[in-house]
Design a protein around this nucleic acid. Sequence first.
DNA 1: GGGATGGTTTTCAACGTTGTAGACTGACGG
DNA 2: CCGTCAGTCTACAACGTTGAAAACCATCCC
Lengths: 335, 335
Amino acid sequence: MHDVARVAGVSIKTVSNVINDYPHIRASTRQRVLDAIDELGYIPNVAARNLRSGRTGAIGLIMPDLRHPYFAELADDVMRAAARHGLVVLIEQLTGDRQQEIEVLRGWRPRATDGVLYSVLNLTQDDVGMLDVPVPLVLLGDRIFNGPTDHVTIQNTEGARAATEHLIALGRRRLLVLGAHEREVVGSAGLRLEGYRQALRGAGIPYRDELVSYVDRWHRADGAAAMRGMLARGVEFDGVVAFNDSLALGAMRVLQDAGRRVPDDVALIGFDDVDETRYSQPTLSTVDPGRAEIAERAVEMLVERMGPGGKDLPPREVPARFKVVPRESTTVRHL
Amino acid sequence: MHDVARVAGVSIKTVSNVINDYPHIRASTRQRVLDAIDELGYIPNVAARNLRSGRTGAIGLIMPDLRHPYFAELADDVMRAAARHGLVVLIEQLTGDRQQEIEVLRGWRPRATDGVLYSVLNLTQDDVGMLDVPVPLVLLGDRIFNGPTDHVTIQNTEGARAATEHLIALGRRRLLVLGAHEREVVGSAGLRLEGYRQALRGAGIPYRDELVSYVDRWHRADGAAAMRGMLARGVEFDGVVAFNDSLALGAMRVLQDAGRRVPDDVALIGFDDVDETRYSQPTLSTVDPGRAEIAERAVEMLVERMGPGGKDLPPREVPARFKVVPRESTTVRHL
DNA sequence: GGGATGGTTTTCAACGTTGTAGACTGACGG
DNA sequence: CCGTCAGTCTACAACGTTGAAAACCATCCC
């Protein structure tokens, strides 16, 4: 920067002003500085800028690992949205371990960014205190309500309810659930289960616990294992509400191995609308939770909070628009 | 840090020394400092540290977007490997635009990290000059050879050849190729095509251009479209070598829609061994290019280069071990 | 002509840390 | 008793940038 200043014949502060688009600069001066920058191939030192200005130009994204297609696609959406605001995204993966999650929040990373997007996983209402971090924070997803922060929520209950109603509309009555979590109430699993129950209630179908499969993790392998367990126990069912697409796809595979036709014998619906659902055999009906909108809004809200006066905004909660996406796995062929 | 020093009754430099594990510190002093740090909840300022020390603790990962399951899984592997070395990963996505790719390399991001992992996409041998960046660089994948940098390579030719031979061993002779790139020689597509040709040659099967489907991008949708095109043209084939799993899965879906049985009518093999291949219907045979090993080795090599004397190491090229993973899409059922 | 005005540029200090070099301390050998 | 030495600790400056405030400089108006 000193070199640039010397070449352009100005002070380093003027170079700084040019770089930062300070308005009151004579056009000719600006041009001389820009030329000098070009000539010398000068690139600002990020660390020094961060140190002096207190902002890093980066936001953190704390989420479960990228192996989940949903989170990979969410990360992609977030990175694109952030790029539109000139921000870089630092991804921090959660292992599913509650202790690690708390350490991540308490750790230095949040302080190395201007703000944090946090796709909550293992924390509960009791952990609200944990969210009292010194940087702007926006939550994605579910779990903690009445927190001190902004929150872009997936409409878990409403979405699961709509998914379940979709199966009921096909005439299915014995509806398996994949992905429930024991004793959980405020997480995705708990909320989606509630949606399922609401739909049953609405249709006058009794809720039966034997149809609920408790699955901790939501990978394909878990869906496959859960379905194998159900089949082994000889449970009868003609529809499956899976709490995410991976579970649904893992389960579908097992169903087909067992000779059940999808959707004829068993109709199947997932949750998340990952790209993969468009290419499975059969294609998977699912609930689009509004992922792109979630990323977009979350970044926007974070940017607002990072801006001047952002600290004084009251906590906001924005529900994303969801919609049921019917595909082949719930489309009974006309024979 | 000043506060910590005051509370512990030492100079700030001693605090710094404790934090950085400087060996010559009296145990009692260290303890007093640690206690003070704890008491005050002190966290080092990353920007200041970066500025003073010249290192950022971050490495860049330049790659195509995370929507490709292969790259999402690779990013995950890289992040885990980096974490083991105490490094953070900054992901930069490529759009597929050659100009953007050059800008990314020329841009400030590489300079904001201690080193860069670069999963080459659109550059060719002619662009070797572009790689002359001021930070340590390790290439992942293919494309540029005899570059000035370290290079962890996928065994594209050998892998594709083994995949093709796998189909030939099943007795298939009319082998479709999905994912070739026009006139390309040194990229994944070119190298994999070469492997395909080698396998045909080895088996005395003539190479026929009508069986080669040129597909620019390698998403599921592209595989589906390519396969639709082939079917529309009435090309006859009994096996498909797809240059990645997404292409294969997209194509498989179209094949099944068209009433072709996989693998009975058409055997199908992909490339990458993404998780999804284990759950498709039927499961997809593929080539495991050694992704975990690639991430691991690449980070290791980058760390070596970032260390003292790293600049003087000669460029190294490490081929990853690959292996064919046979699954149902190439396992003819015994009827 | 002098002061007010507003655009343009500069000076100065500071952000929080670490590298360098040196100061202090006690133990030890001569 | 002094010099040496290893082990500990500290003073100081510097990393490259930007915020605050002041200086400069035309222009304009009374």
